[in-house]
Design a protein around this nucleic acid. Structure first.
Length: 198
DNA sequence: CGGAAGATTTCT
DNA sequence: GAAATCTTCCGA
């Protein structure tokens, strides 16, 4: 079943853990693609120096994060790659969950086509920019309602997977927030962006 | 208004 | 290990 608004109306750290194992779906004119979420990171605007929304303004890039949960926050990084986030919690709390890696479950052919040169299946969605390219996500999808019919997340009723918490990736500048264990990965998944040290 | 830096990927 | 490439934010 499709996740409801209520599912997203919780704090970012909790939502990040609950999203592991759920299935992201994007319907486009080219076709449909689905991927099981195996890696997420939480960003908590009010206390998190690594978050875009830490000193964000309600009218800036992160404006969508100030609204209710369950909307798409997508931004461009390094001028070339899109990153897809799910807005968490209610109005006035700029929190979100970055999806960092997926396990392709449907539309692999379309994903390979979008990603260009032939890739191993484990490399189709093993990173924030890669999964956006494979799923056909760009800033055109900024602000989409995830309770709508084109871009949403499904719960397939699978048993909750075993989850590991680790430090987040590429935020060395974030001072003490650098060490928060706000990256969550599905244990032993071969589809992760960065391997978890033993 | 200009400059710097970034929640990355890919190739050498 | 470094380049590619552009939006956003911050200081002047």
């Amino acid at each position: 079943m499709k996740l409801t608004r209520e599912f997203y109306q919780t704090d970012g750290v909790t939502l990040a853990q609950r999203l592991i194992g759920k299935v992201l779906v994007h319907r486009t004119a080219e076709g449909i693609t689905k991927g099981r979420i195996v890696e997420t990171e939480a960003y908590m605007g009010s206390i998190d120096k690594g978050a875009h929304s830490y000193r964000g303004r309600p009218d800036g890039r992160v404006s969508i994060q100030y609204g209710p949960g369950g909307f798409a926050y997508i931004y461009l990084i390094y001028g070339m790659h899109a990153c897809f986030n799910v807005v968490a919690n209610g109005e006035g709390t700029p929190e979100c969950v970055l999806l960092r890696a997926l396990e392709p479950v449907e539309g692999q052919e379309l994903m390979e086509k979008r990603r260009g040169s032939r890739k191993k299946e484990t490399d189709l969605c093993s990173g924030p920019g890669k999964l956006c390219q494979a799923m056909g996500l760009s800033r055109d999808q900024y602000g989409l309602d995830l309770t709508g019919d084109t871009l949403y997340i499904e719960d397939w009723g699978d048993p909750a997977p075993e989850i590991l918490a680790t430090p987040r990736i590429h935020i060395e500048y974030a001072q003490e927030a650098r060490d928060f264990l706000w990256r969550f990965v599905r244990k032993d998944s071969p589809f992760l962006s960065v391997k978890v040290p033993k």
